[in-house]
Nucleic acid binder design. Structure first.
Lengths: 122, 122
DNA sequence: CAAATATACATCAGATTCTTATGTATTGGA
DNA sequence: TCCAATACATAAGAATCTGATGTATATTTG
């Protein structure tokens, strides 16, 4: 299943996505146990009908930072001769995920009020 | 009227507010015809129950940039001996406001979907 | 009435984080 | 055999925020 609504040609200005990258990564890892970087970019692109396109230059440094903070753990595997680095949530990562998602949910409510937006999704 | 919900002690991490500053400024000016910088910080703080606290170091440069882009116009007034700089939306600013708000509304829907999904993809 | 706080503008060094390449290498398809 | 896709990574420059500092007037409080 992917996200669907009427406006198909919208791509968000990059500044909008700022501040949500880590939350998106954490949420995907919560649902999928383990994923690798390239897979995350493709999944997000697919799930959002190309609205959110994570660039590798933003993604990889973020993943490295989350790993350095003890939020993510990694396993490296070889698919043929090509390396693939899987990321998973550590216990710290699991609690951070909950915090981040609830913070964002609260933020959305505040912004919805502030911008006087009528949402079309229940 | 101000925003109200159960969690009263939440202050959003700064990175969340990034990318929404200009949209917030534009929306307030749309509703209030003209406002000055300090007034904007106070109004946002008040409307969001202290959740969003705009810093002057972020606000003033943003206002200057919007003015330089022809989005905002200014009038300077003196209240006693103290200067006050009022900002208003230009015609360009009015259309930008609509764009920014609808973009954010769409973004919220996408994020709501993205952060709620259960991906049990085979 | 003196001191502290609030009002009101502004700038800037440093930090963070994103964009946009560039780089390396393997794999699959036309 | 190329070209696109897969898959990692880094890095210069750009953009923007934080937190401090600066200046000045107005108001409140002890």
């Amino acid at each position: 299943m992917r996200y669907d609504n009427t406006i198909y040609d919208m791509i968000y200005s990059s500044e909008l996505i700022k501040g949500t990258l880590k939350t998106i990564i954490l949420k995907l890892l919560k649902d999928n146990k383990r994923m690798y970087g390239y897979e995350i970019t493709q999944r997000v692109k697919e799930l959002t009908n190309d609205r959110i396109q994570l660039t590798e230059g933003a993604l990889y440094p973020s993943l490295h930072a989350l790993e350095a903070d003890g939020v993510l753990t990694t396993e490296t595997e070889y698919i043929g001769k090509r390396v693939r680095k899987y990321y998973s949530l550590s216990p710290k990562g699991k609690s951070l995920t909950k915090e981040k998602i609830s913070e964002f949910a609260d933020f959305m409510n505040t912004m919805k009020f502030l911008l006087d937006i009528k949402t079309d999704i229940a």
